[in-house]
Each structure stands twice: as C-alpha cells, then as structure tokens.
Amino acid sequence: MTDAEILAEFRQAEALLEGHFILSSGLHSARYLQCARVLMDGARAGRLAAALALKIPDKIKLRLGAVVSPAMGGVIIGHEMGRALGLPAMFVERPDGIFTFRRGFGLEPGEKVLLVEDVVTTGLSSREAIRAVEAAGGEVIAACSLVDRSDGEVDLGVPFYPLIGMKVEAYPADALPPELAAIPAIKPGSRAKP
C-alpha cells in the first residue's frame, strides 16, 4: 500500500479528525487519528494489517512466537497482525494502572514478541507494554504501528516499523497556540483522565 492509499483508508472511514484533542500522552493536537474507526471494518483492518506485516523484515518474523498489543487501542490491529503473521495475538491491560497480562494470556519464558500499536506519539504506552512483556518472561524483538506520529523520533529500544508516518504537531497544555486554545478540548482516546 502506498501512503496515499493508506490515508485514503483513514479518510473513507472518517478516522482523521480536526479540532482540539488531548492525546493519551497528555499532549494537545489539532488533528486526531481515530484508529478504532479505520479498524471497525474487518476487511479494511485486514488490508492494513497485511500491509503492515510486509514492513517487518523476514529475519524478525521468523523468530516471533506471539503478537502483543496494549489495550485498548492496539487490540484490533494486534489481532489482525496475529492473523496476518499466523501467530497468537494477546493484549495487556491496566486494571490497576500498570499494564499486565490477564484473561489467561501469558508467554513462554524467552518467547519472542512483536508489540503492535495503533498510533505511537511519544512511545509511553509502548514502553509500558514492553515492560509488561518482560515481566511476563517474554522478549519484545520489534514493534510496529499503523501510524507513527513521532516524526520518526520515537525510540522504543527495539526496531520499530510503522505503516505510515504522519507529522501532526502536538503541544504541552501550557504551550498551546492561540487558535488551538480557543477550541474546547476533548479526549477521544482510551485513557479516561484528561
């Protein structure tokens, strides 16, 4: 898939939003990618996952034993990546504020894992999920996401393969441009606290 085809998928799903948004990182932005909308169509989710799977080098794919994604945003794309790669897919969640495996999910000692996200901005959730995999005895050997909003600057400590990079300005709450500050902020992501 070309970048234009990927963006067309987001636009057709009405998943590229304009306004004032508080991201899960706490930063504010005038644009928001609602990956849940682009993934709600199974055929579209499958196409995007297949394209993302092609970004991961074979030398990494051959070593993988599982796909892990953070809940909530990564659950659907993680599942589709598991399907695309022929691997079990599971997720970590935060019942008490820290990512952990639940629902009978677990890893074999030393199991090689692909971490899958929907959108990466600062990498905070990804790094937290990597720690959960390590605490469970696994080893994340690569990470991927549908969208890299970091402008290629995020460092997850492992090779990172986004389907598309998208430069979208993000600002701390105390440094908003006037035009953004004039719009009420909404928090459309999966973390409840603004």
Rank of each mutant, 00 (worst) to 15 (best):
A71W: 02
K193T: 10
D148T: 11
L7I: 15
S24Y: 00
L33E: 00
G86Q: 13
R37K: 11
D155G: 12
G78R: 14
I76P: 02
L146I: 12
R44T: 09
A50N: 03
G157K: 10
G74H: 07
G137M: 04
Y161L: 09
V168T: 13
D118S: 05
D96W: 01
I130S: 01
E14L: 07
G73M: 09
A143F: 02
L176M: 15
A142Q: 07
R103H: 10
E128L: 07
A143Y: 09
L64P: 13
E153S: 05
K167R: 15
S126C: 04
E14V: 08
A170G: 11
Y161E: 13
A175V: 09
P162T: 10
G74R: 03
R103D: 00
G189N: 14
I141K: 14
A89C: 02
L114V: 02
T122D: 12
A45L: 01
T121D: 08
S126H: 03
R63L: 14
L16R: 08
I56A: 10
D174W: 01
G165P: 15
E80W: 08
K59S: 07
E111Q: 15
G189A: 11
G86P: 03
S125N: 12
E18P: 09
A49S: 04
L163F: 11
I183D: 14
L64A: 10
A36W: 03
A45E: 02
T122V: 03
D118L: 02
A66D: 06
Y161V: 09
A181Q: 15
E5M: 14
E169Q: 12
G97T: 04
A30G: 14
G46N: 06
A30S: 14
A84R: 05
D174R: 13
K61M: 02
G165L: 12
I6R: 11
A181G: 15
M81H: 07
S145Q: 12
H20I: 04
V119K: 01
A45Y: 00
T2Y: 09
E169C: 05
M72E: 03
I186K: 13
L48A: 07
L54V: 05
P177A: 13
A8H: 14
R63E: 15
R11Y: 11
M40A: 08
L124E: 08
G104N: 01
A129D: 01
A71T: 00
S29G: 08
G157D: 11
K187E: 09
